[in-house]
Amino acid sequence: MKSKKPGKNPKKKMTRREFLRVGARAGLALGAAGVAGGAFLRGRQTADLRWQLDPDKCIQCGRCATHCVLTPSAVKAVHAYDVCGYCELCSGYFKPNALLLDTAAENRLCPVSAIKRTFVEDPYYQYTIDTDLCIGCGKCVKGCQSFGNGSLFLQAMHDRCVNCNECAIARACPARAWTRLPASAPYMLKGKSRGSGDAKK
């Protein structure tokens, strides 16, 4: 309130309003820079982060299929072949009460026939997932996890994931299995692949 009356010498010096404006501008600039700089310095995260789920925490509740913003979900079942037992009676492929161990739909767990069963040699079969068909429901994962080696597991596919700021599946995940990983290593894999594409926080 002490400064000069406005309009006393408006041409030479800045008016009170101008002075306040410049001061506020400097203050706001410092404030914005401080908030953003402080937030960055807390973590010093230069790489971008991507959403991924930890297969060891996953309980196959089925929400990956239903809660993703994409239809079908960006989460797909993947198969670590080096963990697989190549079982003839695959608990991830057949329903528990399967009448026959064949490829008939009524005997299979997968609701969309996304798992291909191919004969390798007696008594071994290879199971391959067709990612384009898979909807990420996790039924095969649950079967494999319960009675098999756990070689089938769910992962968010990063060619599909749109990397929402708040992942809708992560929000709904009852096992809190979702984390953000650096974009350079955005998977949590099983078997030998663990460590190559995998970066645990």
Partner: peptide
Amino acid sequence: HAQDRFPRPEFKSDYATPTLQVPNAPDS
């Protein structure tokens, strides 16, 4: 432990185990 239930089979034929392929994330 889930991973110990069935040992990895020793194939008699010259079957090569495929490796797990996952698509890369778009570059930073």
